[in-house]
Structures are given as C-alpha cells and as structure tokens.
Nucleic acid binder design. Structure first.
Length: 506
RNA sequence: GGUGGGUUCGUAUAACGGCUAGUACUCAAGAUUUUCAUUCUUGCAAUAGGAGUUCGAUUCUCCUACCCACUACCA
C-alpha cells in the first residue's frame, strides 16, 4: 500500500490564522495516525502579495503548537532549499522551484489540454465590463475563447511570433465543453460538476515566469508524492479543475478531503482578523506585527498553553465519537479520523476556548506554574521564596484560567490593600463586627485559634471573618482567612487591621 | 447573477432508519464554604419549513428558505 503523505501548503501573504493552524493540525494528525509523513511547502507564487516575516511566522506557529513537519524544514528550522535524506523533494518554497513548472504547462499545450493566450489585462477587463453591461458574466471558456486572442484561434506562425516578441502571454487550461466531472471527497462524498460552468484558468504566466496556484499545486503534489490533500472548503470549487489537471497529465491523483470553515462567533461569515479585535479574543496563534506596525494579539501572548490551543482547535469540526474532550496531541493522533470530521462550518466560541485553557492550567504541576508565576511577581516588584509561591499556586490554581490571573487572585498576599471596596465596607465594616474582629485578632495567635475563639463566643462567623477579610484584602472576597494569615503573618494582619480602622469610617 | 457546499439546544457536537433526541461550554437556581471562586446537584434550551419513501425519518429522496464558499495573470 502507498505511503501516506500529506502536506500543509500555506501562502506567506500574512500571519497564519487559527483556521490555517487547524488545517495544519488535521494534516499532521492524519499523517501520524497513518504512520506517514507531514510535509510543509510554501506556496509563494504570487510575487505581489509577499509579506516579509510571514514564512517565519508560519514556522514559529507550527513549532509552538508542536506540529512540526517531517519534511520541508532543515535541521536549523529554516525551510529546506537543498535536498537531503530528510528533505528529498527540496526545495519546498515554490518560488525556488520556479524553473520546473513551464515544461509541465507546455506539456499540456502539446497534448491539447492547454493553449497560449495573448489577451492583455486591459482587453479582459473590457470584455468583463461589456458582459456586465449586458447583464451577463464573462467567462473565459469554450463559449468565448473562439473570439479571443489565443493559439486556438490564431495562425500558428502568428502565435510563434507573439510568443517570441511579447512577454505578457499566459498558458490557459482548455476546459472541456459540457462534460460532467465526477469527484469523490472523503468528507463530502460524491460531487458532480459540469465543465460548462468552469473557466479556462491561467496555469502559467510569462510575465513573471511563475505558475499560478493550480498548476504549481498539482505539479508539486505529484512530484512530492502526496497521497491525501486535506485543505479548506474554499478550495472545493477548484476541485474539478484539479481532477481534470491530473487526468490531462495522466497522473494518479491523491485523495481529497475538504475541511469545513471556521466561522465568526456571532453573525455570519468566516472568522476574520477584525472579529478578534472587536470581540476580544485572538485570531492568530502568535502575536503579529504587520510591516505597517499594526499589532494583532496571539493565543500564546494571551496566556494560552499550546496544548490547550491545539486541543480546542481539534474539537472545532472534528469529534472523537466519545464524550472525551481533553486530548493530548498523542491522544489526538490515536483518536483522529477524517470520517469524524463534520461537513458544516464551525462557529468559534471564545468561552469554550477559555474553558480548555482552564482545564489545562489545572493539569499543570504546581512547580511548572510557579516557574511561570515568578516572573509575573517580579514584574509587580515582588520578590518571594519559590517555596512559598509554590504553596500559593496550589491554593489558587483552581480559581484561574490563565497564569496571569494569579496576580489578580492573590496580590494581597504580597501587598496591603490601598483602598477598600465601598459596597463591601458598607456591608461588613460595622462597629459591633469591628469590635469582635479586633478582639478575636488580638487575643489569639493563629487563624485556627481565632476561629475557635469566635465559635466559642457564638459570634457570627461570617460577619466577623468578612470584617477581617475587608481589612486584609480590601474587599469581601478572596481566599480563606486562615490561608491569608498563614502567608502574611499575624503582625501584618494586625497592622492591616489597624490601618483599616484608621481609614474606614463606620 | 452563476456554480458548488452546508443546515440538531445560543455555541461545539452525539444519536452508522428504531428507548423520553445525549454530552460539553454559556446562563439560571440550589447545596457546600467565614466571603468569592472551586466542587456537587438541578434546570432552561434543538432536529429550518414542506412533500415523499417506510411499520417507523434527525438520518434516505425531492422542493423551498436561509447561510457559506468560489466566481483574478490571489492563494
């Protein structure tokens, strides 16, 4: 049986967004599940839309997620340009493969599957405008190509002359007339399309001597021995062309699987960069600063754990068929299967994303979380013993979604409150409570004794404790008094209490 | 406009023609707790509409509606 080989083939026209990461993830999971190879290829055949830094961003994102390719990267983590044992199909950047595509395009011309077209951009523009004016849509296909300037309509000598003289011609695919293309998609099943609704796509451009996506994609997938093409649903409309291209070349084609789109949380439409900015969640795996200086937030910088991010992405459009929701990458590999991938677009839910991170935070060891929390403390000008921070972490980890929440939850263990929440003070800072609290605090040496003291006197525990809590934390919520006092000590607790007495008016 | 794809609680999804349509997130209520949070319990909430096939349809077929994608010498 043929070895499973899949590829992730992004275009470096900007930062990879979470939908792209999911496509990469599904490719990776499928490859690993089948014991095959996951290949990274950069499709940079559009010389006009190249964005500096985008390729590096893609690689760094995959690295952060732990879904690095088996093939396509050199040992230094850079995209491979030279062949090696691990990179037998290098280069993996299409701009570096530039020289190989022309002969394939011409092979199609020779076989009668493609032709040379000499229409200028301006001519096509006006043809489109004319059709639109007549209430029709201009399609470059069997119906219109006979009246356009190409090697199918022109004298061979004239064609030869133009090919030599001009440098703006293209090679177009000769779409068959009125033929039903029958296709099978692993996710969507059987699909039929009539070629009369399709157009003669440009395959190769003389102007920059570069192929378009369609040609480069098919040629490279063939050359790289790709067995399964797993890509976004937006490619489904070009599947007939790709089928026909494989047929024209006489190549065995890979299996196809078109993934459902990731949609925006509210309203309709696919997830876009603006949604995240507007609704307060990241759309990108990593922070991205555009060449113009525009900043987009990233899951990494927002405090998400990479395994949580991968987990939540995996569950968007796929399910294991069981009720398990938390999966490590290895477990995902084991459980993954393309026939459990859904057909309909998945709306991204930021609340569920946070829930995943919360679950992962709880699974982290106290030691690891402490190591992550120490720098946060330093930022707040606090120096604390790792041992006591570890103890604090174990107390607060269940209350947090992100490590950065730790400070908001436990800051009062390090600093005395500067102000008091008015509403809470009004509720609990009453003379009789304050008197009881003061006595309990002064007369006992530990939180445990204090509790006994209050209990034995049959004082209202809630009122007294909240009075003390208000003095210690500035509000009526937070950790247990015993825990707080263990960390700040009795002296500090008394000092805070006296300070509250000075500052708060009863 | 044309072509293709899609449609189960608000969201993600389960139910390979057959129990009362299940689970998770969110939300609400209750229990626990010295407060908050956690935890636990309970609750709210869905098969887009209409035909057909069938003993029986969320599931198969058709029609309608709505949504999405594509419709470049972009990917």
């Amino acid at each position: 049986m043929k070895r499973t080989r899949v590829r992730f083939a992004p275009s470096p026209t900007g930062p990879l967004h979470m939908g792209g990461v999911r496509t990469a993830l599904y490719n990776y999971l499928f490859a690993k599940k089948m014991g095959g190879d996951f290949i990274l290829r950069i499709e940079d055949t559009d010389s006009h839309r190249f964005v500096p830094g985008a390729e590096e961003y893609i690689i760094e994102s995959l690295r952060w997620c732990g879904i690095l390719p088996d093939e396509g990267l050199d040992a230094d983590g850079k995209l491979a340009s030279k062949r090696s044992v691990h990179n037998p199909h290098a280069p993996y950047r299409q701009s570096e493969r530039k020289g190989i595509y022309r002969k394939y395009a011409e092979q199609l011309v020779d076989g009668g599957f493609a032709y040379y077209a000499f229409d200028t951009a301006a001519e096509l523009e006006s043809a489109r405008a004319a059709a639109e004016g007549a209430g029709e849509t201009f399609i470059y296909n069997s119906a219109s190509r006979s009246s356009l300037r190409n090697s199918l309509t022109m004298d061979p000598a004239e064609v030869k002359r133009l090919l030599e003289e001009r440098d703006d011609w293209t090679i177009r695919f000769r779409m068959p007339e009125n033929e039903v293309v029958e296709m099978d998609d692993i996710i969507r099943g059987h699909i039929e399309v009539n070629t009369s609704t399709l157009d003669d796509k440009v395959l190769w451009k003389r102007a920059d001597e570069l192929p378009t996506y369609h040609l480069a994609n098919i040629v490279d997938d063939h050359l790289m021995e790709i067995s399964h093409v797993i890509r976004g649903e937006e490619w489904l409309p070009s599947l007939p062309l790709h089928f026909l291209l494989y047929r024209a070349f006489g190549w065995e084609r890979p299996e196809f699987a078109h993934l459902p789109l990731l949609l925006k949380p509210v309203g309709n439409g696919k997830l876009s960069k603006r949604d995240g900015d507007k609704m307060g969640f990241p759309v990108f795996p990593l922070r991205w600063v555009s060449p113009a200086g525009e900043v987009s937030r990233g899951y990494r910088e927002d405090g998400y754990f990479p395994d949580a991010f991968v987990n939540l992405l995996a569950m968007l459009g796929w399910n294991p068929g069981t009720e398990q929701e938390i999966f490590s990458l290895e477990e995902l590999v084991q459980a993954f299967s393309l026939d459990k991938v859904g057909k309909s677009g998945a709306k991204f839910n930021p609340d569920k994303a946070k829930w995943f991170n919360k679950e992962y935070l709880r699974m982290r060891s106290d030691e690891e979380l402490t190591a992550l929390f120490m720098p946060v403390l330093a930022e707040h000008g606090v120096s604390a013993e790792p041992a006591s921070v570890l103890e604090i972490v174990s107390l607060i980890k269940e209350r947090a979604t992100f490590v950065r929440d730790f400070w908001d939850i436990a800051w009062y263990l390090f600093n005395a409150p500067e102000e008091y929440v008015e509403k809470d003070a009004a509720k609990f800072w009453k003379s009789e409570n304050v008197a009881m609290a003061r006595e309990a605090l002064m007369e006992t040496g530990s939180a445990h004794d204090m509790e006994e003291y209050i209990r034995s006197r049959e004082w209202p525990m809630g009122k007294v404790m909240n009075c003390i809590r208000l003095a210690l934390t500035g509000s009526s919520n937070g950790l247990g008094i015993a825990d707080i006092m263990r960390f700040i000590g009795r002296d500090e607790a008394l000092a805070r209490f006296h300070r509250a007495e000075e500052r708060l008016i009863i």
